[in-house]
């Protein structure tokens, strides 16, 4: 552990270079843009934290941020419990296991924009199976016009696409629980709820941390699906930060504010992820792990 081997650095070097080109340099470029203004001709002026101030004070940013937070909260509240429930209901042995695993993996294999397109068509009132059926049944459903309908469509779509991920993670946690725990619980007369609360949930905690982090970051950065399905509308109802950012940068070519906004965006994700991680892994830090059992 404590011996330094300089050869190791040569092995790590390619990765460092790759990371530098793919992450650090672009990030520095963004930082560079965020503190300058340009009137074309590649002329840049130092504006300090002006753009940050502007973005943070703008209502447009506040609204988009709120939408993002709301969306992520709803997604987590649905997908995590639903994922756990499905994982609990899945068979532990026999042929059913592989069938379930394949079924669960299917949505994950479909690219974002394809999922978006599928749902965009699926939910259309005129030709989409879902939209048409709902309308025929007498529901007043139209995601291009109604804010609530647009949100429901996006949420259902995300749940359909990503709950499997939570299921697979939870399932891997569940199958690693030794049989003796369930036997001991039966001996102790524990109820089904107690088994879940005191055995399954604690043993799943590590994978749940990963699931929550992944789902939060993904949903907070959601772009493709609303872009394809609702295009941010109706009005600005589904204009999330990412969509707003692209509009600002590409559509209006406001590079300065867009750069400032993306940095703020980045920091928010970092902060929230850190909070989740700290809270959920706090218990681990309480006690050092004991001697493992064979």
């Amino acid at each position: 552990m404590k011996s330094w081997n300089n050869k190791a650095w040569f092995l790590v070097l390619p990765v460092l270079l790759l990371v530098a080109f793919s992450a650090i340099i672009p990030l520095m470029t963004v930082v560079n843009y965020s503190v300058q203004d340009s009137f074309g001709n590649n002329e840049f002026y130092w504006v300090g934290l002006e753009w940050f101030k502007e973005v943070l004070e703008s209502e447009r940013f506040h609204n988009a941020l709120m939408r993002n937070l709301l969306f992520s909260a709803i997604i987590l509240l649905i997908e995590i419990p639903l994922g756990i429930a499905i994982a609990l209901a899945m068979p532990r042995r026999g042929w059913g296991v592989s069938v379930c695993l394949v079924l669960m993996a299917l949505p994950l294999l479909i690219p974002w924009n394809v999922v978006g397109t599928i749902w965009q068509v699926f939910a259309r009132v005129d030709i989409g199976l879902l939209g048409y059926t709902l309308t025929q049944l007498g529901f007043d459903y139209n995601y291009t016009q109604d804010v609530v309908d647009a949100w429901i469509t996006l949420i259902v779509m995300d749940v359909w696409h990503w709950t499997s991920l939570v299921v697979l993670l939870c399932y891997s946690g569940l199958v690693s629980i030794p049989q003796a725990y369930y036997q001991a619980a039966r001996i102790d007369g524990a109820s089904r709820w107690a088994v879940f609360r005191y055995i399954q949930l604690p043993k799943m905690r590590r994978v749940l941390v990963i699931a929550v982090l992944l789902r939060f970051m993904d949903s907070f950065m959601i772009y493709t699906e609303p872009f394809v399905v609702t295009g941010g509308g109706p009005g600005n109802a589904t204009t999330f930060l990412s969509i707003d950012l692209v509009q600002m940068a590409i559509g209006q070519f406001d590079l300065g504010p867009a750069a400032a906004m993306s940095l703020i965006y980045f920091l928010i994700i970092l902060l929230v992820s850190w909070v989740f991680y700290t809270v959920m892994t706090q218990q681990d830090a309480d006690s050092a792990p004991g001697r493992g059992q064979p």
Binding site: P178, A180, Q183
Partner: peptide
Amino acid sequence: TEQRNIAQVFQFPVLYDT
């Protein structure tokens, strides 16, 4: 099992971690 009122101790420790 629950209704048999039997206690059983296993080879490896089984504890409720939380």
